[in-house]
Design a protein around this nucleic acid. Structure first.
Lengths: 131, 131
DNA sequence: TGTCGGTTTGACACTGGTTCTCACCAGAAT
DNA sequence: ATTCTGGTGAGAACCAGTGTCAAACCGACA
C-alpha cells in the first residue's frame, strides 16, 4: 500500500520548471521563492503546483527539505546519500557534510535508552567566509 | 542594546501558571496544549499570553523549543546546560542527552569550511520502549 | 490521426497556528 | 491616592500551506 504505488511522475512542463529552478542553485529556497523565481523567469506555474511538486520531490528523495527558524519549509537539490547541511546564516550558502561518527553516536544513544527505529535531524549554522 | 535590557519579567499569576504547567511534564507541549491544560485546570489565561510567555521563557533560556514536522512549535522545561533531545515519535517522552563528540565535530567541520559563529540543531527521534 | 481515461493543473476558498492591536487591568513607585 | 508602566486578553489580522474541482493535458490505443 505504501510501497509499490510509485507512479512514474509525469515530466510535465511545470515539473521540469520547478526542477530547473532548483538545479544550479546552492541555497535552500522556499516554495514561494521558487514560485516567484519561475514567474520572474516567464514560466507560469501555479502556487499549489509548486507546493505539490516540491513535496513530491522531497518524498521521492530528490531534494532535501528543512524548516527555517520561523517554521517555513525550504528545499534544495541534494545528493542521494545521507548527509547533513552546513548553512550560512546570512547568505544561505550550503555545504553538504557527512558524519559517520554522529550517525553511530545517535543510534547508540537511542538504543541505550531503549528507543528503536531511530532517525535524527542535524543542521549546522554559521557565517561563511564571504559574509 | 541587546544585552542590558533584561527586564525582570514580572512573576504574574499567568506567568506562574504557564511555568507550572510545564514543570512536572516530560513531553514537549505546544502553546495550544498548554493553553488548554490551564483552562482545564481552572486557570484562565489568554492564548496570546501563553504564546508571549512561552516565547519569552524560551528567549530567556528557561525552556527549550522545537518544531514538529508540521512546523508547530512545542516547548519543554529543560536543564540549563547545552543538550539535545531524544524524543519518542509516538508518545513524546523525551530524554535529554549530551554529546561532547558531536559538539566538537560540528565545530571542526564548520571551521574547516570557513564558517564561523557556529551553532547547530540536533534532535533524535525514535520509538520508546513503552510504545 | 482522433478519441478516451486518468493525471495534472491552477484559481480560489479555506484552515490553523501564530502574531498584532488596543482598550483595559494590576502592581510598584511617587 | 494618583500616576506610571508593563501585562493582559478578546478578537482581528496574517500567512504558509492545503483542499476543491472544473478544465487542460498527456500518453496510449484504436
Amino acid at each position: 500500500m505504501t510501497s509499490t504505488d510509485a507512479q512514474p511522475l509525469r515530466p510535465t512542463r511545470q515539473r521540469k520548471a520547478v526542477a530547473a529552478a532548483l538545479e544550479g542553485c546552492n541555497e535552500f529556497r522556499t516554495a514561494q521563492q521558487v514560485h516567484e523565481a519561475l514567474r520572474g523567469g516567464g514560466d507560469t506555474v501555479g502556487l499549489s503546483t509548486v507546493y505539490r511538486t516540491l513535496q513530491a520531490m522531497a518524498d521521492a528523495g530528490e531534494i532535501d527539505m528543512l524548516r527555517s527558524d520561523a517554521g517555513e519549509a525550504s528545499y534544495r537539490r541534494c545528493s542521494d546519500t545521507h548527509h547533513h547541511h552546513l548553512v550560512c546564516r546570512s547568505c544561505g550558502a550550503t555545504v553538504e557534510v557527512e558524519g559517520p561518527t554522529v550517525e553511530k553516536w545517535t543510534r547508540a544513544v537511542a538504543e541505550q535508552h531503549g528507543y528503536s527505529e531511530v532517525s535524527h535531524t542535524l543542521e549546522i549554522f554559521g557565517t561563511c567566509s564571504n559574509c
